[in-house]
Design a protein around this nucleic acid. Structure first.
Lengths: 197, 197
DNA sequence: GTCTATACGTGGATAGAC
DNA sequence: GTCTATCCACGTATAGAC
């Protein structure tokens, strides 16, 4: 029974896809429903949007939920987490940078929404931490750690995470890192500060 | 000749002071002129605002300019930059964290304005970099540096700056650092990763 | 399910009295 | 220099035809 399933993605999908980009780019307040309609191929100003969502807030919630789910399901690029050498950690950090790239829109929306959505902030934060710190990296740091890491492993993890987040956000919001250092040099240097070899 | 100078700060000042906070808190788009008037003790909805500024954009420019000037003039808390020991760097980093605190509103406005004000982004960025990296810290790192720092000093500086910025922004936007690490532990650990002793 | 048309509210900005 | 009053643009949201 085929029921002639629509070949073209249905409108609800197109609205969500368009809104994700627009919300990340201009913020929720900065993207009127009219422009969402336009971006979704609907006539701007017609209330066609409202056949699919109650209002902009409901759309926002749906979009964020969907994107969190998508990102959470992304496979954890392994890159051999068994050894302890700096080059392996550097590779792991490169993966983490890519993961932050996937979180880009969510982070942008979060920043636009500032205090307005503490629950979203918390969920995005734990996505970052779980992926970046808990899952593999912490153990990597704990394998034959240097003195500083041994002295306070969670502080060292925090430094690592903050450096990554700071680098990523500098790129996103300043258009460039504090100095002119490319991702490869950055992750390599960070890794060498944290582990032996 | 006293000319009876106004004891109460004049309205233009009050508007700018109010706007700085409101813009940082809710963004420019998120703070109607009416609310600026209210916050400045004027009747909201009266156009009294427009006797002092042409429009909101002009106000924004004035406010940002003024705040950049204020922050740039802040004295560079010295905290003895002569030695090379980790505790001294940590102290310096604590000062830097305080300095980022002074930049708080500018950074917030910058984030709200995203791509809209690349010139402001550049100026805030250089305020950060000049204060944090160029001015004292770079030399500190170069005095009897550890291998990693010697190998690529500007990459190491970048890691340091990014860690600081990442820590600061995590506090501001997530309400907490990636893990529960207070500023003191954070700066101490970061310092120990970067210098001998 | 999308359109045209429209009612309504909020906020930007000006006019003119005081 | 601040007020009241007002105009206008824009965006939200609904009604009803197709």
């Amino acid at each position: 029974m085929v029921h002639s399933v629509a070949v073209i993605k249905n409108t609800r999908e197109r609205i969500m896809a368009a809104a994700l980009d627009l919300f990340a780019e201009r913020g929720v307040l900065g993207t009127p429903v009219t422009s969402i309609e336009a971006a979704a191929g609907l006539s701007p100003g017609s209330g066609s949007f409202y056949r699919h969502f109650k209002d902009r807030q409901e759309l926002l919630a749906a979009v964020v939920e969907r994107e969190i789910t998508r990102v959470a399901k992304l496979p954890v690029d392994p890159s051999t987490t068994d050894g302890t050498r700096a080059s392996e950690l550097a590779a792991q950090l490169c993966n983490d940078l890519a993961f932050l790239g996937e979180l880009r829109r969510l982070i942008a929306i979060l920043f636009w929404e500032r205090g307005k959505a503490p629950d979203v902030a918390e969920r995005v934060r734990s996505l970052m931490v779980e992926r970046g710190v808990e899952l593999g990296i912490a153990e990597l740091l704990l394998t034959d750690p240097i003195d500083v890491v041994r002295a306070d492993p969670s502080a060292a993890s925090t430094v690592m995470m903050c450096a990554m987040v700071g680098y990523f956000l500098s790129m996103e919001y300043f258009g460039t890192p504090p100095a002119e250092v490319d991702p490869d040099r950055f992750t390599r240097t960070l890794a060498r500060l944290l582990v032996r070899g």
